[in-house]
């Protein structure tokens, strides 16, 4: 044990610059992620600002019970899960497919151009993106004008509950397809070129090479990304929904986090929203553990 500490100390001294650079990250997690956990207790209390976090009276499971009994419980849980499920099905594979396609491009210049263009939307602020959505999808917006030429009556996109998920997911794809392909491109570049040579010798065409060499080569990366994705399964893009939704489409757009925001921040019911948030976090945690366990069972790739 002591030898471990001597080694650690020696390492700390030797690589002090590296550790120094790590410090902010550690501090970030301690301050912003572990520190606030102290406040989680208000989920089991009737929090009053005057009495403080420690001084507020304990009320047990009261807030959880009223959340599970709430008329909106089923709806917001369902909306959250559906939205996540849809992005898993429709959004998650896009980055992989896009990376595979880019990889097949022979012209370096074209490839660079496509990459740059597809990354661009990632750097646009979410507020601007949603603003653009509103403009394009307005009653007299671009999309409806095109539909008008085709003789289709204008569709109130941003006010139809039925359209919300489609708009949410497709704009997500548009914004992030380039960015999410980066990690896969990096993985592809590590695939041993001799494998391709061998495959070519065996008479594999370009599609077969992609299917039998590239794809298996990046499966570990895909698995890791999938586990991380599932860890965030209950965390839909809350800011985006807040910007996009209105009462008319609550039916499909209201998710756990927007509900927490309205309850907690706008109506100052902090304890109740802490309980809802905690519920959300526990589910996420369970999902992450399960996904990791399944991945461990199926192959060698895992988070820990």
């Amino acid at each position: 044990m002591s030898s471990y500490f001597t080694r650690l100390c020696r390492d700390l001294v030797r690589n002090r610059a590296v550790y120094f650079m790590l410090l902010p990250v550690v501090a970030y997690y301690v301050i912003f992620h572990y520190g606030p956990m102290y406040g989680l207790q208000i989920a089991f209390k009737d929090f009053s600002p005057a009495k403080g976090i420690g001084g507020s009276p304990w009320v047990g499971w009261k807030h959880f019970e009223s959340f599970f009994g709430s008329v909106y419980f089923g709806r917001i849980l369902g909306n959250t899960l559906l939205l996540s499920l849809y992005s898993l099905i429709f959004f998650f594979p896009t980055g992989i497919i896009f990376a595979l396609l880019l990889n097949e491009l022979r012209s370096g210049k074209l490839r660079k151009a496509v990459q740059t263009i597809s990354y661009m939307p990632h750097f646009i602020s979410l507020v601007v993106i949603v603003g653009m959505l509103f403009d394009f999808l307005a009653r007299d917006g671009l999309i409806n004008q095109v539909l008008g030429y085709l003789g289709i009556e204008a569709i109130p996109f941003m006010r139809s509950p039925g359209w919300f998920r489609t708009i949410y997911i497709s704009s997500e794809i548009w914004q992030s397809i380039g960015w999410s392909s980066i990690v896969y491109l990096a993985a592809i570049s590590t695939v041993n070129p001799t494998l391709y040579e061998a495959a070519r010798m065996d008479g594999a065409g370009r599609f077969k090479q992609m299917w039998h060499v590239t794809l298996p080569g990046i499966i570990p990366t895909i698995t890791i990304m999938l586990i991380l994705f599932i860890g965030k399964f209950m965390t839909v893009s809350f800011e985006k929904i807040i910007l996009m939704y209105n009462p008319v489409i609550y039916e499909t757009a209201d998710v756990i986090q927007t509900y927490v925001y309205r309850k907690g921040i706008l109506e100052a019911d902090f304890s109740y929203s802490a309980a809802v948030g905690l519920f959300n976090a526990v589910i996420s945690f369970a999902l992450l553990i399960t996904a990791n366990a399944v991945a461990k069972k199926l192959g060698e790739t895992k988070l820990w």
């Binding site: 410090l23 902010p24 301050i31």
Partner: peptide
């Protein structure tokens, strides 16, 4: 490199003081 580290660290420090302010009794 040192400069970058210092900038990052300073960033955390300010964030830190901001955070503790919010939690002030």
């Amino acid at each position: 490199a040192y400069g970058m580290a210092a900038v990052l660290f300073a960033g955390i420090l300010t964030a830190c003081s901001g955070g503790s302010e919010g939690a002030a009794p």
